[in-house]
Design a protein around this nucleic acid. Structure first.
Lengths: 219, 219
DNA sequence: TTTACACTCGACACAGTGTTGATCACTGCC
DNA sequence: GGCAGTGATCAACACTGTGTCGAGTGTAAA
């Protein structure tokens, strides 16, 4: 009733001295297997047995490493997000002399590249909205973007390069973040877009974000 | 190989003269049951047995009326969409003297009411993105809104009440439609919002849509 | 060489799906 | 009133997938 026990670790904690490390490889193999399968099959069509077979192990062995298919997926998602997370602030800091439009365009292009590189996993997480664990991880990732955008809006309002639309910056940032998420999902779900399609998609989204925020920048 | 047979009707076609009609009631009861269950449980957590029990029949009997759980859900979705479909054009025609802002606000408020009345079903369809049949129905519904919005943008550009942003009206309309969809989903997923929250949410979305389109209307 | 633990999997219990075949019920016709 | 024909129903089955248990095997340190 009082102790909200943290989920007990599946594998026995490695002893005082870790004797061997095969487990780490196995975990990676399992994630690789799911990653691979997701390229051709939506998550709901992938069984634990598929994942295990792909990793060269039996189903019970997979359960030695992860509690459930959902847990495997969340681990893969975490690994994927960690791989591609250049924090948005770093992106912007890396190129200081950008116009506001170029800044937003660079940010959105960066996100688009994530979709190009890891579309299968990102698509899967959007479709796994009824999995609370996966959804929480994804929402957190989106909130990081929204938080950056919120600060960005406040900064531009303060320095007069954005008109004050009357909207709460946090509301505006969240709505625009989910706008981008949804449209990227739809775009990549329809099939791998060509370079020209990407550019056009990017222009549309960049324009909406800038006008919604009220950037007065002429460029 | 050559005849793409249309899905054969599950129930035997009613004979030359329909003897009785119990089947229609049953179908409605089944949909009612799923509708009811969705209020408390996400679609993936609802078994065919649950639906059947809720309709007062056994599982095999349900399969007499529908091929699968997915088909039940799509039928419920169709029924729900039919109930709430005032075409957007009618909404606008019903109140001719509205400013552009009021027009968009009325449209979005109408959509919001759908979420208030049928949130469970709408939430379920968004989460059923990996069900091709359900997704197709939903996409079609969204495309109807996008198509209306596209015409609306063109009209306002033509009469000079919207600046030409350089974006293709269809792209803009689609992006904004999915923006609204995603944000409504997120809002209603977080719990039933209060009236004040609804108003604020509506203001944010209306503002984004109008500025994104480039409405020059001062109001 | 014994002990301890990482690791593996065959076999099980269980839950859910979709199908089959037997059966009952209603209606219309002779 | 009896008897077809079809609508409607469900017990029982075959199958797929999940997650667990317990009996192992291999390795490294005591």
């Amino acid at each position: 009733m009082s102790t909200p026990t943290p989920p007990p670790p599946r594998r026995a904690a490695r002893g005082t001295r870790a004797p061997y490390e095969r487990g780490d490889q196995r975990e990676a193999q399992i994630l690789d297997s799911l990653d691979e399968l997701l390229r051709t099959t939506p998550l709901t069509g992938i069984s634990v047995d598929h994942i295990a077979k792909g990793a060269g192990i039996s189903r019970p062995t997979l359960y030695f490493y992860y509690r459930s298919r959902s847990e495997v997926f969340v681990a893969l998602l975490r690994r994927t997000l960690a791989e591609l997370s250049t924090p948005p602030q770093d992106l912007v800091d890396a190129a200081p002399e950008l116009t506001p439009r170029a800044e937003i365009a660079a940010l959105l292009r960066h996100v688009l590249r994530s979709w190009q590189d890891h579309g299968a996993v990102l698509r899967a997480v959007v479709e796994a909205a009824d999995d609370p664990a996966a959804d929480a991880v994804w929402r957190q990732a989106m909130e990081a973007y929204a938080h950056f955008l919120e600060g960005w809006i406040e900064r531009h309002r303060a320095q007069g390069t954005a008109v004050d639309t009357g909207d709460d910056p946090a509301d505006l940032a969240a709505a625009l973040t989910w706008m981008v998420e949804r449209n990227n999902y739809r775009r990549f779900r329809a099939g791998t877009p060509t370079g020209a399609e990407i550019d056009r998609h990017l222009d549309t989204l960049t324009g909406i974000v800038l006008r919604a925020i009220g950037i007065t920048d002429p460029a």
